[in-house]
């Protein structure tokens, strides 16, 4: 089932003297439960593409359709709400809320969505156990290692059962062991939760585990390989 569709998407930054074509005529489809790596050298447009998919930025032309909704047609406030309900984010620098515990961080989106307390608690514990942090639910981010924080971030991204999760260089700040653990967890959740993961990366370990690898260069898709 198709969860995300990009049709002839372009993004041109024309703030400077020379316009920059960051994303150039990209058309892609993503199905449910895919585990996709977007790779390419620095400046190839990976992060811009993720921002466009995540509705954090708007394309200069083309359409981005998520589960039948064209993002360009949404008003700013509708877009924020749409993001909250349909897209999970994992950031390179973890970006947890420092004053909240691991449990509170994970249940944050659910509380914004006004989930009932019982369901919220159950889902939070389920996810924190899944990422191996069932015993650290009351720890604040400052008391967790980088790998543990990123696992909390993954649990948070999945909390409200989004259509897909966007991860921008999720292992960039992690050591090898933490990165491997995180990737294992993400792959398990990808299978278990049937949620699509799309991540930009330079990390060969991530690329190795991906089921589909999209390569960008100068904003264009130069290859889209699906692995069996």
């Amino acid at each position: 089932m198709k969860v995300l569709e990009l049709k002839k998407v372009n993004k041109i930054y024309d703030g400077s003297e020379v316009p920059v074509h960051a994303v150039n005529d990209v058309s892609l489809d993503f199905d449910e439960a895919e585990f996709v790596a977007i790779v390419g050298p620095s400046g190839s447009g990976k992060t811009t593409l993720l921002n466009l998919i995540g509705g954090l930025d708007m394309p200069s032309s083309g359409e981005i359709i998520i589960d039948g909704t064209n993002l360009s047609k949404l008003k700013s406030s509708q877009l924020i709400d749409f993001r909250m309900r349909n897209i999970g984010f994992v950031f390179q620098a973890y970006n947890l809320i420092p004053v909240l515990t691991a449990k509170e961080n994970v249940e944050f989106i659910m509380s914004l969505q006004k989930w009932p307390r019982k369901e919220r608690d159950e889902r939070t514990l389920e996810l924190l156990n899944a990422v191996g942090l069932g015993d650290r639910i009351n720890s604040r981010p400052s008391k967790l290692s980088g790998g543990q924080q990123q696992r909390v971030a993954v649990a948070r991204a999945l909390a409200s059962r989004p259509k897909f999760v966007l991860a921008d260089e999720p292992t960039a700040n992690l050591d090898s062991k933490s990165a491997t653990t995180l990737l294992g967890i993400m792959e398990t959740l990808n299978h278990g939760e049937k949620i699509t993961f799309i991540f930009s990366t330079h990390d060969p370990r991530v690329v190795k585990m991906a089921h589909r690898v999209i390569t960008l260069e100068d904003g264009r898709v130069i290859s889209d390989d699906v692995r069996e």
Partner: peptide
């Protein structure tokens, strides 16, 4: 700034 950006990204609206 970064934290506020993250909150906006994950769905915290302007009113909140």
């Amino acid at each position: 700034t970064r934290e506020l950006g993250m909150l906006m990204a994950i769905g915290m609206n302007r009113r909140r």
